[in-house]
Design a protein around this nucleic acid. Structure first.
Lengths: 338, 338
DNA sequence: CTGAAAGCGCTAACAC
DNA sequence: GTGTTAGCGCTTTCAG
C-alpha cells in the first residue's frame, strides 16, 4: 500500500502556492523583487511539502556544480586532517560543495583520485599537502581549474597557502644552535613531499649560517616507527636532532631512552607540527607550531575569490608564520660534548 | 581568441565515432551486445575528445545519485579519521560517490551537516562515531535512508559496525585485575558519545565481576589535556587507571610523571585505540587495538549490499574483535599498595 | 545490435 | 512582479 511517493519538485511547490515554478525558483535563489506575500506563500509550501531542491537538475541547468574538489593524503595524521576539516567547513560556509577525496601518495592513486574529482566537474581544486606526484598528475591531466595547494612551498601549480616550512625548520635549528649544539642532525620526512624538502632546506640554511657541518640527513616517513629506526643511524657525536615532525621525534626519543641516553641532558630533540599531545610527552617536546585551521580557511577564501570574484590576478603565495614552541626536550649542550 | 570551448558531450562522441549517442551511452555503461569494432571506435573517440560524462545529467536522468553521505566528527583524531578514509576509499571502489561532511558534536552543526547531505540526495548514510545528537537529528529529520553507524554499540538507528567497546574496556580492566590491582579508576570520554558509554560499561562490568569497588569515573574529552587534568582528581589510593583512549592516557602519564609517580612501578595505565605512537611512548602504552580500516570497509560493504542487493534484511550489528596489546605501562600491583 | 523520441527538475532568457 | 518557453546532457522506453 505504501506507494513510493516521489520527491516533490519545483512544480509541486508552485502548484501548492499558486504561482509559477519560475517564481519558486526565484524565491529559492533569493532574487530581489518578489512580493513578500508571494514569497511567504512559497516558503510555506516548501516547508509543508518538505521540498528539497534537486542539485543535479540545478547543476545541469545552470552549467555549474558549485563544487570544489579536495585532494588529501589518506594518512590519518593531525596536520593534514586538521586542514582538511578546515577546508571542508569553510567551503560549505561559502556555499560551495566540498568533495573530499583521499589518495595514497603514489601516482596511480593520485591520478585516479583526480580523475574522480574531475568527473564530478569540480570548479576548483584544493590539494592538501601535495607531494611531487600530484604536481605531475595535474600537469598530465591538463587541469585548467584554479588550484590551491596547502603546504607547498615550491608548488608551481598555482596558488599556495601554508606556513613557511623552511623558516620553521630554521627556527628550530637556530634554537639548537643558540643552545650551543654543534653537531645537529636532521631526521627528515620522505622524499617527494614538498614539506620534506622545505624543512630539510631550512635546517641546512641554519647550519650553514652558523658555520656548522651538515651531517647526513636521515630520511623517515613521518611515523614514530621511522623515527625509532632513524635513531639507530644517528651520527655518534650528535648532541641534538631536529626532526621533520613530532611523530618522528617521538620515535627518536623512544630509541634514545631505550639506549640509555637522556633527553635533553645528553641530547636535545625538536619536532614540527605541535601535535596536541606534544606538550604532554615527557620530556615535553620543543616543536614548531603551525595553524592548520587558518591554512585551510585561507585556502578556501582564495579559491572562492577566484570563483566568485574576478577570478584573475597573479598567483598568490600566502605564507603563515610558524612559531617555535620551546618546551623541555631541548637544553644547552653539555660542555664536555661540544 | 581563445574561445571558451564547452566540454564535449555524448553527442559529440557519437558524431565523432559515427554512431548514435545511444550507443555511446551503452558503451559507457558497459552494456553487453555491442559489436567490438563499434565499441573500440567509441572508446577511441572518447579518448581523443577527452570526454567525461556529465554526472549531473546522469543523475537527473537516471533518478539516482550513486552517492553516499559520510558524516564524521570534525576532530582530527586517528581513529575516526582512519575509519573515514577507509569508508571513503571503499565507497569509491564500489562505484559510489562518497560525500564527506564533518560536523562538530553539537546538535546545530549535526543538523546542518545532515541537511547538506540530504540536499545532495545521498542514497545512504554512514555515520562515523555517532554521538547522541546524531541519533536525535536523524529521527527529527525523518531520515529514511539506509544508515550504518560506526562504533555505535547502542545505535538504534540501523546497522552498526564497530568493535565491541565494552568488551575492549573489559579486556583492559581484566588485565589490570589479573595484575593484582584492586583500586582501579576509569578516565572516560565525554558524555553523549556512544563509545564513552560502552567503554565505561566495560570497565564497570570487569570491576563488578572481580568484586572490586567502582571508583568514581572521571570524565574527559578524548584529549591529552583532559587526561592531564583528570589525573589531578584521581582517588588517592588508586594503583591503576584505565583510560578511555590513548590521548587521555598520555595526559595521565604526564601528570603522574610530574608528580613523581612512576608508571608502571607505582601506578599502571592503560589506553584504548593503539595509536601508531603508543608503542613509542616511554613507557610504551598498554592499550586496546581496533582495526579502524576494517570497520570502514565492512560498513561500506553493508551499505552497498542494501543499495545494490535486495536492500532488505534485518538490522545488522557487526562486531569486530578488539585486541588487548600489553606493553610496559602496566605491571603487577606492588604488594605494599594492595 | 543500433537508433529515435521523450523527459528527468531546474535555470535562463524572454515576454507580459 | 510574474509567467512562458527552451533547453542543460544524459538514460529510458520502444522501434527497427
Amino acid at each position: 500500500m505504501t506507494e513510493e511517493r516521489r520527491a516533490p519538485t519545483l512544480v509541486d511547490v508552485a502548484r501548492a502556492s499558486g504561482v509559477s515554478h519560475q517564481t519558486v525558483s526565484r524565491v529559492l535563489n533569493g532574487f530581489a523583487g518578489i512580493r513578500p506575500a508571494t514569497r511567504d506563500r512559497v516558503l510555506a509550501a516548501i516547508d509543508e511539502l518538505g521540498y528539497r531542491r534537486n542539485l543535479a537538475a540545478r547543476a545541469l541547468a545552470a552549467g555549474r556544480t558549485h563544487s570544489i574538489g579536495i585532494l588529501t593524503p589518506s594518512v590519518p595524521e593531525h596536520g593534514p586532517t586538521s586542514s582538511l576539516f578546515a577546508v571542508e567547513g569553510a567551503a560549505r560556509e561559502h556555499g560551495y560543495r566540498p568533495l573530499v577525496t583521499a589518495a595514497a601518495a603514489d601516482d596511480a592513486a593520485t591520478r585516479a583520485a583526480l580523475g574522480f574529482l574531475l568527473d564530478q566537474a569540480v570548479e576548483a581544486l584544493v590539494v592538501v599537502v601535495p607531494h611531487a606526484g600530484v604536481v605531475r598528475a595535474l600537469e598530465d591531466l591538463g587541469v585548467v581549474l584554479p588550484v590551491v595547494a596547502l603546504q607547498a612551498p615550491a608548488g608551481p601549480t598555482g596558488d599556495v597557502v601554508g606556513v613557511d616550512h623552511a623558516r620553521g625548520a630554521r627556527l628550530a635549528t637556530e634554537h639548537l644552535v643558540a643552545l650551543g649544539h654543534r653537531r645537529i642532525q636532521h631526521v627528515s620526512g620522505p622524499a617527494g613531499w614538498t614539506e620534506s624538502a622545505a624543512r630539510r632546506r631550512g635546517v641546512a640554511e641554519a647550519l650553514d649560517a652558523a658555520g656548522l657541518e651538515r651531517l647526513p640527513v636521515i630520511e623517515g616517513d613521518w611515523t614514530a616507527a621511522a623515527g625509532f629506526e632513524a635513531a639507530g643511524r644517528l651520527d655518534p657525536g650528535v648532541t641534538a636532532v631536529a626532526c621533520a615532525n613530532d611523530q618522528l621525534a617521538i620515535g627518536v626519543m623512544a630509541a634514545l631512552a631505550d639506549s640509555g641516553r637522556r633527553v635533553p641532558d645528553d641530547i636535545s630533540v625538536t619536532g614540527f607540527d605541535d601535535l596536541p599531545e606534544a606538550a604532554f610527552l615527557r620530556p615535553a617536546l620543543t616543536t614548531v607550531r603551525q595553524d592548520f585551521d587558518e591554512i585551510g580557511r585561507r585556502a578556501v577564501e582564495l579559491i572562492v575569490r577566484r570563483l566568485d570574484g574576478d577570478g584573475g590576478g597573479a598567483v598568490q603565495r600566502i605564507a603563515i608564520e610558524p612559531e617555535l614552541v620551546v618546551r623541555s626536550s631541548t637544553a644547552p649542550a653539555r660542555p664536555d660534548r661540544v
